[in-house]
Simulated assay, not measured.
Amino acid sequence: MGAVSRPSPAVALVTCSEVPHLDDEGQHLLVALRGRGVDARPVVWDDAAVDWAALDLAVVRSTWDYAPRREEFLAWARRASSSSVLLNPLPLLEWSTDKHYLAELEAVGLPVVPSAFVEVGDGESHPYLDVEHVVKPAVSAGSRDTLRLGAHEPDRSRAHVGAVHAGGRSVLVQPYLAAVDEVGETALVFLDGTLSHAMRKAALLPAGGELVEGLFAEEEMTPREPSAAEVEVGLAVMAEVTRRAREAGVAAPLYARVDLLPDDDGAPRVLELELVEPSLFLDHAPGSAERLAEAVLHRLPH
């Protein structure tokens, strides 16, 4: 009797309709997976024709349009996770799509960029009107609806808070940490819980700038060797994420990005924890797409 051939595992790399064939790094991952015998394909998350039960694994990647449609996106994630293995897992998507998680990270002692939340109905003032600061929705991605404002622009700042509130969204306000203009932001990329590589992101928000048009602001990226202090903070954040995943009864994240800024003393602080659709810069870090592909193989249901 001849050997029975098994079908290749079916893995969706989940994207949005604006980039239905994935971005460059998504293509790198697609090639790495197919080279390992995986039936990998890009799938648009809100395509009603997709049979999620026919997939062994759905890996969220370039779903960059989720922020203005968060509830719709999470409803999709619940449906997909009920019939397929969703990565990152649903509880982590629910938690990390709203930047109120920064307050929770700070509450457990992690160094976070100072953050104030202005809820709908609380007015338009905030504690950082008298310093340079950043105003953004608590649910946002790609620097959309985000402004860098000076101490001389309190009226514009309040107006932007009001504009975000008018859409029913909470606001996050943070002081602008000026060291980023020279040092840049450090993005630590973790694949399957292990630090894979790091990138330097040049300062993104111009003083007195306008709102970003399109899905995201273009980023200027270069490889970076993170400092020991940055790695220590990144590992501490990942330990907390893993603890939360365990508490929720789900797997630790397949991928994560911890974005750090230097404070006035040069100490790293967490700006964002990206667990949904972050760029992982696989096209900038040789071998990283292959490492992520191997991690995906290890997550396939047996």
Results as ranks from 00 to 15, higher is better:
242 T>M: 06
229 A>V: 07
249 G>E: 03
238 M>V: 07
239 A>K: 10
220 E>H: 04
233 V>E: 02
219 E>I: 04
251 A>I: 07
221 M>I: 06
214 G>N: 05
220 E>Q: 08
245 A>Q: 14
248 A>Y: 01
227 S>H: 06
257 R>Q: 08
243 R>E: 15
225 E>P: 05
218 E>C: 12
229 A>K: 04
243 R>I: 14
241 V>Q: 01
229 A>Q: 13
250 V>E: 03
227 S>G: 12
213 E>T: 14
229 A>R: 05
257 R>C: 04
219 E>W: 00
244 R>W: 07
213 E>A: 15
239 A>Q: 11
228 A>I: 10
249 G>N: 04
240 E>H: 12
247 E>A: 15
215 L>M: 08
243 R>V: 13
251 A>Q: 05
226 P>F: 00
217 A>G: 13
214 G>R: 02
245 A>M: 13
235 L>Y: 02
233 V>G: 00
250 V>I: 05
250 V>M: 08
223 P>W: 01
221 M>L: 12
239 A>R: 11
236 A>F: 09
211 L>V: 14
228 A>K: 10
226 P>N: 09
216 F>V: 07
257 R>K: 11
224 R>A: 02
222 T>A: 10
216 F>R: 11
217 A>W: 07
235 L>W: 01
240 E>C: 07
237 V>G: 04
233 V>C: 05
247 E>L: 12
228 A>H: 10
225 E>W: 08
213 E>Q: 12
224 R>F: 01
232 E>R: 09
242 T>W: 09
249 G>F: 01
253 P>G: 12
226 P>A: 06
251 A>R: 07
241 V>D: 00
241 V>H: 07
240 E>G: 08
227 S>Y: 07
222 T>Y: 02
211 L>P: 12
240 E>T: 14
226 P>V: 02
234 G>W: 01
243 R>Y: 09
237 V>F: 11
221 M>D: 01
211 L>M: 13
241 V>G: 02
235 L>T: 03
235 L>R: 02
241 V>Y: 01
232 E>N: 11
217 A>P: 06
215 L>V: 09
229 A>T: 03
227 S>D: 10
223 P>L: 01
255 Y>K: 04
226 P>W: 00
214 G>W: 04
223 P>F: 08
241 V>K: 05
214 G>I: 08
239 A>D: 11
217 A>D: 10
246 R>Y: 12
234 G>A: 10
237 V>Q: 00
228 A>E: 14
251 A>P: 02
252 A>F: 11
255 Y>T: 03
237 V>A: 09
252 A>T: 14
246 R>A: 15
255 Y>M: 03
221 M>N: 04
246 R>G: 15
222 T>N: 07
242 T>D: 14
249 G>S: 03
245 A>I: 13
234 G>K: 01
253 P>A: 14
239 A>V: 08
237 V>K: 00
212 V>H: 12
236 A>P: 02
228 A>C: 10
218 E>R: 15
